[in-house]
Design a protein around this nucleic acid. Sequence first.
DNA 1: GCACGCCTGAATGGATCCAACAAAGGTATA
DNA 2: TATACCTTTGTTGGATCCATTCAGGCGTGC
Lengths: 234, 234
Amino acid sequence: MSSSGGDSVISRLRKLISDGEYQPGDRIGEVRVAQQLGVSRTPVRLAFRTLEQEGLLERAGKRGFRVREFSAADVLCAVEVRGVLEGLAVRRLAERGLDDSLDELLSFWIQKGRELLAKGHLEEVDVGRWGDINHSFHEALVAAAGSPVIGDAIARNNHLPFAAADSIIIDTEALDREYRKLLQAQLQHELVLQALRCGEGARAEMLMREHAFIGLRYVDLLGMEPVSLSGTDE
Amino acid sequence: MSSSGGDSVISRLRKLISDGEYQPGDRIGEVRVAQQLGVSRTPVRLAFRTLEQEGLLERAGKRGFRVREFSAADVLCAVEVRGVLEGLAVRRLAERGLDDSLDELLSFWIQKGRELLAKGHLEEVDVGRWGDINHSFHEALVAAAGSPVIGDAIARNNHLPFAAADSIIIDTEALDREYRKLLQAQLQHELVLQALRCGEGARAEMLMREHAFIGLRYVDLLGMEPVSLSGTDE
DNA sequence: GCACGCCTGAATGGATCCAACAAAGGTATA
DNA sequence: TATACCTTTGTTGGATCCATTCAGGCGTGC
């Protein structure tokens, strides 16, 4: 019994790491994790291999693993990687043409975004809803790119902390500023769809690349604290 | 005893798959693989998780794995992914400037390539040597991109069959044609270095993207058989 | 006093055992 | 005869056990 459902060890361990329970650079042992999660060593060993492939862990010498540390530069780089990959996806999409059903789907999520932002300000509950809308839009784009390869590459990249498209840091203290950010994101979504409809592959690609930065650079511009991962207390 | 060294199960299994021992789409069982490799189920299970992350295996329903199948379109897509990622790497490199030691290293491998191709034709032993030179050049570029994130993404992408930069198919029957291909590749290497020295990020990126296609599209142009993976006998 | 080597302990990797679940086939009933 | 349920079997996931290896400490010899 217990809540040991299959891959739940992986996600629980991932959460432990991102919560800072295991510090970046720390050696991470099978026995301790197994005890902490209340499971045997076997699923932990399996999870370690998976998380190593995901990039959250790295081999510590010949023996064991350690939690990988990511600098702010790494996070920026991961965001750029997502940008070029999603850019590739939309360029291919523009080149092969946008079919009606996908146009409809994208329009649907754009309409949802419009409705969410229509009231002119942002409330705290809207944050999660925007996350869903944004995720669905991106997912639809990537899924339609013609091959699962791009989606896989993006998915693997998204395992890195703060790299995923839906990991925009929302400062609930400054919903006003966040609202302007989401307005910008929404505009970029609409521009991408516009470019796709016109078959403008290069433009769509560049828009998507720029769009990736919205969670990072735009934050800096607005004077917020840049993301830092390693060893910061909250 | 036996030759069961650590990750060797992974590479042996990878080889079994790429050799067509297990057909794409086939369900792959732990017991059979374990017996075939002469090891217990445990390392096989670990290898399955790793290969799943690498994209060679996929979950078959709720239970077990199956060998993933790649279409020609997927291979093309993986090559394009490598192109945009390596393009990103060199653009970042151009933007932050090329330091002397890297310039020296890249020049070294370019010189090696020049020497290899200087005699005006290609011999069979040169194929492997070109592979090494090419690999070193690409590796040096990616390693210098400022963050391991890009390199990781490329490495993961390279696990897909025929996606790696050093998996140019060399037709030893037509070394003359292959020679012209490698001349082109060498020229592209030199152009990239030129662009890097001038800080021309966009140009370097586009050159690198185009360079990625040299193993595929150029093959088609020359009338060779396009790569096909699934179920073809050799 | 320093260095080399041995010994001990701990942690990981591999093998085996047990349980749970899914798929398939057979039988009974409507 | 067809369908539904039950049984049986095979495969996978989890737990435990054994061997191997790496690291650290201590002792002895030079």
